[in-house]
Simulated assay, not measured.
Amino acid sequence: MTAEGDTGDAGILPDTGRAIGFSDAVFAIVITLLVLDLRVPETAPGGMLRALLDQWPVYLAYVTSYLYVAVNWLNHKGTFHRVRCADRGLHWANLGVLFSVALLPFVTALVSRAVEEGDVFDERVAVSAYALVGVILSITWLWLYHYLSRHRELLEPHVPARFFEAERVRALLGVLAYAIAGLVGVLLSVPAALVVLLLLPLFYGLSSNGFYDLRRRLRHRR
């Protein structure tokens, strides 16, 4: 194991501030891009209310993706709060998460446009694309959690040994849930898939401090 103040062959550094700062900037840019799809409708005088109401798919897609980005930011904050130092492998895993998060504005625009225009085939394509990004994002979180579970030298001393092992389960649930949402949208019902996509960030928001911590708190309430 490399000493804390030495970079060594593994490139371990005690300061994670640059990774956190860069990641926060990416999350901020992604949230800013989401709002750009909220546009002022072109309408004749007296038709503003109807035109705004007709844009409900845009609002739904924005709220869903905003929640998703917010939850990912909370997960990221909770993860790096437990990281003492970083190496190249951790930086690459973190960049994988950011790569996936940056895709959300694109698929959000796809879903809102398809639902707004009402073409069933396009709706299925857009929802499956959104779910695919959810799968990819969950896989990158799985990669990050797996890396941290195998490199305890990067973690703060107070982090339980099994914390990031339990987080891998939470990420794997995301892979399965988003894949199911995509299949529901393609084979059964686009509205049902949209409901699943909206509910998933709520679950991850409730467990943003970690699946291990959530299970521990639930056990203490019994």
Rank of each mutant, 00 (worst) to 15 (best):
Y59N: 06
L60Y: 14
A61I: 04
V63Q: 09
Y66A: 15
Y68A: 13
V69F: 08
A70P: 06
A70Y: 11
V71K: 01
N72W: 01
N75P: 10
K77Y: 15
F80Q: 10
R82D: 13
R82G: 14
V83C: 02
D87S: 08
L90W: 03
L90T: 03
W92H: 13
A93N: 03
A93G: 03
N94I: 04
V97P: 08
V97F: 12
F99V: 02
S100K: 06
A102F: 09
L103S: 10
L103A: 15
L104N: 06
L104Q: 07
P105A: 07
P105Y: 06
F106E: 11
F106D: 08
V107Y: 07
V107T: 13
V107K: 08
T108W: 04
L110I: 04
V111F: 00
V111E: 00
S112L: 04
A114F: 10
A114C: 10
V115Y: 03
E116K: 10
E117Y: 09
G118W: 03
D119E: 15
D119G: 14
F121R: 14
F121G: 11
F121H: 14
D122M: 13
E123T: 01
R124W: 03
A126N: 11
S128I: 11
S128Q: 11
A129S: 14
A129I: 10
A131F: 00
A131G: 00
L132F: 15
V133F: 05
V133Q: 05
V135C: 07
V135R: 06
S138Y: 05
S138R: 05
I139H: 09
T140M: 15
L142D: 12
L144V: 05
L144H: 10
Y145V: 07
H146R: 15
L148A: 08
S149I: 02
S149K: 02
R152W: 00
L154K: 05
L155E: 09
E156K: 12
P157L: 06
H158L: 09
V159S: 06
F163P: 05
F163W: 06
E165F: 12
A166C: 10
R168V: 12
R168T: 14
R168Q: 15
V169H: 10
V169T: 14
R170C: 08
A171C: 00
A171M: 00
L172C: 08
G174V: 00
L176K: 03
Y178M: 07
A179T: 00
I180S: 14
I180M: 15
I180L: 15
L183N: 07
G185H: 02
G185K: 02
L187S: 07
L187W: 13
L188V: 01
